[in-house]
Design a protein around this nucleic acid. Structure first.
Lengths: 231, 231
DNA sequence: CCGTGCTAACTGGTCGGACCAGTCATGACC
DNA sequence: GGTCATGACTGGTCCGACCAGTTAGCACGG
């Protein structure tokens, strides 16, 4: 948990990022000039420039030679790589974003289970069954269960063969498993009840896409419901 | 079509990016030192540093103070922000990735149409109707229709209120509208037949989520089918 | 009075050269 | 053979200068 010695540009980019996604800097606002920022933070202009470069590649600001650097409407222009930053706004998890993420993931979960049912071979099914077995271990910790649950998801994505969904999954994993226990503390242990997974795997083995999708959607819905109850 | 005068850091980052995703630089390989690169490209080291910063935020390289900068295994851990770079591998569009992208987008299209039906207010519906009107213009160019079609999608996402889906959409837009005509040349004009959009808007106005979702899914399926026919 | 166009004071972009701060291979020493 | 100092790398930060676009304001001609 100790902070690694961070580059100046990263620290400043981080400050500004948080100011932007936190709403203290609104889309359209002009940032102070690089020279001003350099003086303000008491660092060299080069460091400010590198920080600005990061903000720009994150889609948070628009730099124009000769004109002021302005905050862009990042919800309009930023990519998914911003997600990890949005989630831990000021160190606290933003529940609304998390809600969005989970509902989206739930739907994708169902969808790729359907595709997996059409494409899985014997080896794939075996892998999934292995994961279900581990998920059923009564001695497993909640954090471990969360990882397994995600591994199951990622395996479904792999079997579905959709590489774009694979990239998406990589980003979400970073968010989902953040921190020492991921979000395990946010959810009860029952969230990882493997019964839905078991049903899904059986359906995939039987090439029943609809049933597999329904099972995984039910699993995701359970997670959401459990979360609402604890709110 | 004329190239805007590009920053040299961007040009160099672009060169290296293409070398990495093109496989000329493999994961684990060490890049030349910043001083070497500066001499090699005959630019200042600052420009090289800014280029490296971009590569790092793209997840393509790992920079370590004191050690060499190495290409990271982006295929394993990279996020969706890499999609635009992957698609134009070597200047050519990879049809398989595009296929994955379209099927995923189609499903999301249906899903957020359902959510939009639950959340849209009068102003939202009006906006959608305006877009449908423009889509119905018989004089519109194919490229313009593609932009409108995407605007319609993006508007649905906005109405759905799912911010994570919004971020995803931003990335996809970059890919989808790449090049002078986007992918308009890949699809026939009939792909942008607005009849499905019309049905969807009517359903959203009537709060009929299922119908709206079905209409947009049908639209996406048409696009895919049309593409397969022309293959 | 309005518009036009020049100019000056901004903005970001590039330069080079100095020095600080980690890493790592090498080789003397135990 | 192991270990640890050391120097030659690597990237990180700083400075100060100048180039190159943008913009706002002012003087000028209509």
């Amino acid at each position: 948990m100790t902070k690694r010695p961070e580059r100046i540009a990263d620290k400043i980019a981080e400050k500004l990022r948080s100011a932007i996604v936190g709403g203290r800097l609104r889309p359209g606002d002009a940032l102070p000039s690089e020279r001003e920022l350099a003086e303000q933070y008491d660092v060299n202009r080069s460091s400010i420039r590198e920080a600005m470069g990061r903000l720009e590649t994150w889609g948070l600001v628009k730099i124009r030679h000769g004109g002021a650097t302005r905050v862009s409407d990042f919800l309009m222009g930023a990519g998914l790589e911003l997600l990890p930053h949005l989630v831990e706004l000021g160190g606290k998890v933003d529940p609304a974003i998390l809600e969005d993420l989970h509902s989206l993931r739930g739907m994708l979960l169902g969808w790729c289970a359907e595709m997996a049912a059409r494409k899985a071979d014997a080896g794939d099914v075996e892998k999934l069954e292995g994961l279900v077995r581990q998920l059923s271990d009564p001695k497993a910790k909640s954090s471990a269960l969360q990882v397994l649950d995600y591994d199951f998801y990622q395996e479904l994505v792999r079997i579905s063969g959709n590489r774009v969904l694979g990239l998406f999954t990589n980003v979400v994993r970073e968010v989902y498993l953040k921190g020492p226990d991921g979000f395990a503390s946010l959810y009860g242990r029952d969230v990882f009840d493997p019964s839905h997974h078991r049903v899904a795997v059986a359906a995939i083995r039987a090439r029943d896409g609809a049933k597999a999708g329904a099972a995984m959607r039910a699993h995701a819905a359970t997670a959401l419901r459990t979360r609402e109850e604890t709110t």
